[in-house]
Each structure stands twice: as C-alpha cells, then as structure tokens.
C-alpha cells in the first residue's frame, strides 16, 4: 500500500492525487445526500467549458520560462474591452462573439508585447512582478472603464449616463451562444457542447504550436536559457512570444467565460481571476517550469468539477455560512503555495 501510494504521488504529484481523492469523497457524499447528480455533472461541464481557455493560457507562459502568468488579468482586460466594443457596435449572437474574440487579439498582442519586455527586465521575479502588474493594471482600468467613451445604454450607468456599469448582462447579446451551440440533452440536462468543442479546438492549436519550430525553441528557452542561447535561440524573443500567446489566450478565454456566465464583470472583477487558472493548471500536474495540454485538461476538469460539486454538497452539510467558498479559497491558494515551494527546489 505504501509502495502504491508513493508510486502514485511520484507519478501524478500530491495536488492531483489529493484533489482527486477529495473529489471522490464529495461525489460519494453527494450520492448519500441524494443530490441531483445529472445536474451536478452539467454544472461541472459548464464550468470546464467556461474556464478551459483561461487555464490553457498558462501553458505558453510557463513553457517560455516566465513562470505562471499571474499577470493574466491584463489579457483578461483586453478581452473585456473587445467584448464591450462588440456590444457598442450593436452586434448580437454568434457574430458578436466572434467579433469580440477577433478584436481582443490585437489588444492582447500589444499588451503582451509590452508586458513581455517588462518581464525580460525582471528575470527571476516574473511571478511576483506579474502579480502586482496585474493588480496595478486592473486598478488603472477602473478609471478607464469610467472614462472610455462608450455610449450603448446597455452598458453605461442608467442614472448620470457616464461610465460603464460593474456588470454588463449579455443575455440578449452573445450570452450562452457557444454553450447552446449543438447542445443536446443527457439525462435531461443540456450539455454545453459548443464551449467544450471550442476549448478542445484551442487545445489542439496550442498543442500543434508546441510542435512547430518556434514552439520547440520556446520550450528549450524556458527549460534552460543557457542551453537555448548556446544553440542559437533568442531567449528574450521566445519569452516575449510566450507572453503574447498567453495574453491572447487570456483575452479569448474571458470572452468565452463571459458568454457562458452571462455577464462581463468590470472594475475589480478580473482582479483574482488569474489565481483560479494558475491553481487549475497546477492541480493538473504542471509546475512553474513545465506544462502541457494534458495538465490543462485534467487540471481544469478536477478543479472546476470540485468547485461545482462542493458547493451544493457542503452547503447541505452546513447550511449556515459559506464553507464551500472557504474550501475554494483553501484549494486555490493552497495549491499555488505548494507549487511555488517546488520552484527550483530540486537543486
């Protein structure tokens, strides 16, 4: 038994094993509590489709050597900005979604390029700097949301008529358009097919990218910068490309998130979003130095299934207070803490 445990933890890492065990226990309790199991399953799938691309955004930044992208909120802001523009242009439905995604890309590329230049100046401290950079830009954009000249009555404050609202409803814009795309019912619950397919498509694209010449160079630069330099790879350039890709995925990710969630959350909404994505990819078995698509898929599945299932189960066990929220916080930050203690720990 001890042998078995050691083998499993060596192969998958503690976070993945422990979270899986925790998830199984929650599932058992859910059965005992006679929860609506198909409903829980649907909630899990929705959350996976919703957050998958955001988690995927961690892969290029980790592999290019800039570590976990705690500054992902910058990319998220680009996505929100693009989404707002698409609403301003009075677009709706799938057109609005695609327009939002396409418009977010140039913003993300510019932001990622500048952010990448910054990260090249603070080598070794990317994650700390990234965290505060993310916080700063979110705060800066709080002013931006007030000042940007948006006119659409769906977005600006009803009274006074200046500045954007804190939450913008997407129900009659592009809310749920992907979730409902090709959706079918299983056990009486709708499956968010479109979002899951889109997540899968993005995974394949990123996977293919890491098989290209640039992708291989990026992994080498992130794994061993000295080696890369000695073999004619421009390390700083690869880091910038990795950062840009991460930001672009972050921008697309938030648009997908919002369509599923039904709202854009402005102002301090994006403040803590990178942490969830960071945590999920770490649970999937990534480290601050290496990540792959399998880490993303398994991490997203485990982490967001855990959140979806723990909420009703724990609330039923302890109706008073919001223990499930506490669990979410413990898991999120606990996993990040664990991963950060592992950085460079094997020398």
């Amino acid at each position: 038994m001890k042998e078995f445990w050691k083998r499993i933890t060596d192969k998958y890492g503690y976070p993945k094993v422990l979270i899986t065990i925790f998830l199984i226990i929650l599932c058992i309790i859910a059965v005992i509590q006679q929860q609506n199991l198909p409903g829980l399953l649907k909630d899990s799938l929705v959350r996976i489709g919703m957050n998958g691309v955001l988690v995927l955004a961690m892969v290029p930044s980790i592999n290019s050597g800039t570590g976990l992208n705690f500054g992902l909120s910058i990319g998220i802001l680009c996505g929100i900005l693009a989404g707002c523009i698409s609403i301003e242009l009075k677009l709706t439905g799938m057109t609005a979604l695609i327009a939002a995604i396409l418009m977010s890309i140039p913003f993300s590329v510019i932001a990622g390029y500048l952010y990448g230049l910054l990260l090249n100046r603070v080598k070794g401290d990317e994650m700390t700097v990234g965290t505060y950079m993310g916080f700063s830009i979110v705060s800066l954009m709080c002013i931006g949301w007030l000042l940007l000249p948006f006119q659409s009555p769906d977005m600006i404050w009803a009274i006074g008529g200046k500045g954007l609202r804190t939450t913008i409803a997407l129900a009659d814009k592009f809310g749920k358009v992907l979730d409902d795309f090709l959706s079918f019912n299983v056990l009486g619950e709708p499956v968010p097919t479109g979002s899951l397919l889109f997540f899968g498509l993005m995974c394949v694209i990123v996977w293919l990218f890491f098989k290209t010449k640039t992708g291989v160079a990026m992994i080498a630069a992130g794994d061993n910068a000295k080696f890369a330099a000695a073999n004619g790879i421009n390390v700083n350039q690869q880091r910038v490309i990795g950062t840009i890709l991460s930001m672009v995925l972050g921008g697309i990710g938030i648009v997908i998130y919002a369509q599923s969630f039904g709202f854009f959350q402005l102002y301090t909404g994006p403040l803590m979003m990178p942490f969830m994505a960071v945590s999920a990819v770490l649970i999937g078995g990534a480290s601050a130095k290496k990540a792959n698509i399998a880490n993303v898929v398994s991490g997203t599945t485990l982490f967001f299934a855990l959140l979806a299932i723990s909420l009703p189960v724990i609330n039923k066990m302890m109706p008073e207070g919001n223990l499930s929220e506490v669990i979410r916080i413990i898991v999120t930050y606990g996993v990040i803490l664990y991963a950060l203690t592992k950085v460079g720990g094997d020398n």
Binding site: V216, I219, A220, D223, N224, K226, F227, A230, N231, G232, K290
Partner: peptide, 17 residues
C-alpha cells in the same frame, strides 16, 4: 548546465539545434 536539456528526450536534444 549548458550542454543538455536534462528533462527532454535524447532525440530532441540531438536535433534541436
């Protein structure tokens, strides 16, 4: 330190440059 990607396969180490 400089000569190898230690956590990468032999084949990639050989062809990467």
């Amino acid at each position: 330190g400089v000569g190898l990607l230690l956590d990468t396969s032999i084949e990639m180490n050989i062809v990467i440059t």
